[in-house]
Design a protein around this nucleic acid. Structure first.
Lengths: 167, 167
DNA sequence: TCAAACTTTCAATAACTATTGAAAGTTCCA
DNA sequence: TGGAACTTTCAATAGTTATTGAAAGTTTGA
């Protein structure tokens, strides 16, 4: 397989994966492109490589900056801005975990806490409800703790520990 | 807070969470409804409770069956089919992990393997590419292993082990 | 075998999300 | 200060996904 094909294919696949991780397709593709590029790219170059419009490029670059997984850098003597991606996959995963925790887990935890002190009216339905909420809350809190550990952890420590688990 | 409100709110929140977990909104809502319901519900009842159409209900019930997170049950003396959800949140999470592994991780692993033996043409770009692919592959394989462990694990064993990690 | 009771399908359409590109905005320096 | 170089915005539109509901299909039992 030739390099350009391979690059193309990886960008596509990364786009799909990123999508199911909560980024959008273009966002993930820009990210993939920056991952495999040895030098920082300008908006112009990104537009060209991925054949996307200026506006689209701009929006998604901004979103990636927001998520904290790419960085804006200036090159001396150049007016335009360049972008480069965090190359460390581990750091990337941690960042994504952090964002998703904020965007997904936190809201549901909030609702579970609210809903947890519902008055049971004595009906079977409401009893079951309480029970399920309690279970969900327990699970969500445990997961939150685990995520927290992951987010704060060092790569080597994490994988060593996990490796032990997997034995 | 009153029970009906609470139920409503939980169903909404669960819908959103499920959505970001790769189910679709209705699918997740049906699931939430079945979770909190002490008895199995018919398609009819689901349609009513969530104010959705017959077709929509049917499609999403089928998808949930597909994912293996709800079950079809028959009630003696009744013609229609009823559905109930796996109530064990843990089992549910494992099932979702399993499906997502199949749908997401496997495809990217396949691409990474393919792309891994690209010919470098000696350019800096292609060298960087190889390096990144190698890293990604490493990460994806480790994650796959971890997921695998999760999917096969027992609840108590898993949380005990994780709890130790979190210390 | 028939028809009531139920389930499934699917074309139409609604709802949502992503993308474009021209225009407005900003920054920089001669 | 003017205008070139660049970035950001946003209304229009394309593209995608979800939903409806009527029609077709299936199952069951009298």
């Amino acid at each position: 397989m030739k390099y350009t094909e391979a690059k193309e294919e990886l960008i596509q696949a990364w786009g799909n994966l990123g999508y199911s991780w909560g980024l959008n397709k273009t966002m993930a593709q820009i990210h993939a492109l920056l991952m495999v590029s040895p030098k920082a790219l300008s908006a112009e170059e990104i537009m060209q490589e991925l054949s996307i419009s200026r506006g689209n490029a701009n929006m998604n670059i901004r979103a990636l900056l927001d998520w904290g997984i790419i960085a804006r850098i200036s090159v001396a003597g150049e007016r335009k801005e360049f972008f480069k991606s965090e190359k460390n996959v581990w750091a990337l995963a941690r960042q994504v975990a952090k964002e998703r925790r904020k965007r997904e887990l936190e809201p549901i935890l909030k609702v579970l806490k609210e809903v947890n002190d519902v008055q049971t009216d004595g009906s079977e339905e409401s009893k079951e409800f309480k029970k399920v909420v309690k279970e969900l809350k327990n699970f969500a809190e445990k997961s939150d703790g685990l995520l927290e550990t992951f987010i704060r952890s060092e790569e080597s420590w994490f994988w060593n520990t996990v490796l032990k688990m997997m034995k």
